[in-house]
Write a protein that binds this DNA or RNA. Structure first.
Lengths: 207, 207, 207, 207
DNA sequence: AATGAATGAGTCTTCATTCAT
DNA sequence: AATGAATGAAGACTCATTCAT
């Protein structure tokens, strides 16, 4: 029928993807602004600069868009964490500290990302869809941390229960994020990061 | 209709208090069932065994009732924690372990109480009312923990940053509660409690 | 308000039933006005003199109300037909003519009732719910007509295929109702009724 | 883009007519599928193999297309009926029976055609546009039937009221179509056709 | 010619709240 | 004290239509 250009199937898809991303970004901003449960289609589309009806062209509905928004944030968080770990070199403990740093500094740690993650964790109990996503993401992350813990323990010649340490570590991160979200004046970013570094040092006998 | 006691100074108030408590309990159960944000007046009143309209007689509105429900849960949690600490004797580290135990066992640790606390923490960022309550409660708790940490450090002759340790501890608890709420098969009550005890042991050099 | 009689459970039910009937009547009027498919909740509630939201108190939703409206009309049509037949005496042919008369005169034959029936018949093909209701009502009616046909044939000593005659008769009625609804200037009530009487006379050799 | 024929006077018009017919056929199919009132532009264009927006190029809007679809079906029904009558020879009663046959057999009698006709008749009351079309078509058809009735009565030497007989006949057909559409298991095509033949025989004294 | 991006009107539904009894 | 009748606001969704490309 066509083949207007050599490659590049359906140029329409280009705009389509751009708009989806626009809406996802607007959804993330809206979640951050008013909270996952108070987001409205109106607000999202306003934030994206489009009219209410557009959402129906690109997503099944509001819930589907919010879900995509959460997934996008999760991907971003995961990506920045992995990137930081990679950049940290081979030392396992150094990698763990790098992960801590990535967990409390941009680009991963932003108001929007933490807000969305808190929404995911805080609502998973009452939404099988969110729970499923949470399980997939967070268990995977915990497993990766556990492997780092094992390596670090070997490297530091310390005997620890890596699984417990990983559970402690991930939930400490999550608790600090929640705390920062709920009471940022008390649980500041700096104190939160310091607490994590301190935990690692205590765990691996560096104190 | 009644006259349950010989001299009831304000019998209406008596019943009034009973009804309020009924509704608060029903609200707690509803939050636990469907989540803070999906609770309806209908559901609460049904759970309490009354009709929709009753809520208006005892509370300013739905939000006021939910707020009271959260406060009631917080009071219960605080009470059971203090009780456990008192019962644990004078040893600071023992008291801390007792607090951990209380944090993951009934009567404080129940599905309803954790659900409500998760709702409080997870929504505080987007509700000044909840945020204010959260700050008051959680900062106070953290301060109490900090004092215990200081005592325990002295007792164990360990040099720690009590403030950081208290922050770590409280957010670890909160993170584990959230984790249990969101993924109870992975973050089991037992593993969560063990992680906390382990943290204390690591912190105070018992490992 | 009244009676507070010895029996009479839940006086509230009284109002409830009245309101349901109000809404059903308003729905019937709305169907007659704008057609089954263009009826809006707004229009129904306006017609009933209430606000939009009331519908939710008494019916599951718009569709449920419309369904009840159709059932109510069907019951009314059936009742008036049976009544006419009963009043006509024992002669089967006389009863048939009485049924014809009832089919084209009040109280059964009204603009509203015919409109609703036409809506039922005209939409049944695309709605299993309506189809099911239609089958139940119309097959039963046809069967009753068939029995009358048999009796009349015996009485008139005419040999007819009662089943075919009943099918012809019922679909003639339905076709005339549709014709009256669609083109009342051409298919007048009088001509329609005459055509039916004439059919019976032809069938039973009275011409 | 193309030049399918050597001399196309108005090639655009040619394609234009083809597209219009495509859309009309798709509209007929859609009406048959989901009912006149639930047809969407989306569904029609999908069925035609085009995108949503195409409809605007060839029709004023959705309603105009549906109207054309109804007219097309009416033309087809009228054509097949006339053809059958012509082919039946000169005998008026034979022609009437041929018309009956054509009314319940392809190519006139198809699921699509009957569905669309039922839509026309069933919605005419609430749409002046449809009512007008219905009047024009059906009154003409009835008049033609009336003339055949008169001829047949003369041929059979039977004294009938041709106008009443024509009304009866046309509304019997319509009632049977509606019945077939609404309850095809009960009002089968065969029984419907038989009932019509039987009516003619009764009317003209052939039984 | 054809697409699909974008709009906005229209409608249903949910639900907290008020109030008469 | 308790009920449930009634309201009306708010939001999500569907869909016909317009229009730039």
């Amino acid at each position: 029928m066509e083949s207007t250009s050599i490659r590049g199937p359906r140029p329409s898809t280009r705009i389509s993807e751009v708009r989806k991303r626009d809406l996802i970004n607007a959804a993330i901003a809206s979640i951050s602004d008013v909270g996952y449960n108070d987001v409205t289609v109106q607000a999202i589309c306003n934030a994206a600069g489009f009219s209410r009806g557009l959402i129906g062209h690109y997503f099944k509905g509001k819930d589907a868009l919010l879900f995509e928004a959460v997934k996008a944030v999760a991907a971003e968080l995961g990506g920045s964490t992995r990137k930081a770990a990679s950049a940290a070199g081979a030392d396992p403990l150094g990698r763990l500290h790098a992960v801590v740093h990535a967990s409390f500094n941009p680009p991963g740690f932003t108001e929007e990302n933490v807000s969305v993650w808190v929404s995911l964790a805080g609502n998973a109990r009452w939404s099988e869809e969110l729970a499923s996503l949470y399980r997939e993401l967070w268990r995977g992350y915990r497993k990766a941390i556990e492997r780092l813990m094992e390596s670090a323990a070997r490297a530091c010649q310390v005997d620890i229960d890596a699984a417990t340490a990983a559970l402690t570590y991930t939930q400490l991160i999550e608790g600090l994020w929640i705390g920062w979200a709920a009471d940022p004046d008390e649980v500041t970013r700096e104190r939160a990061e310091a607490a994590c570094h301190c935990y690692l040092d205590t765990l691996f006998g560096k104190l």
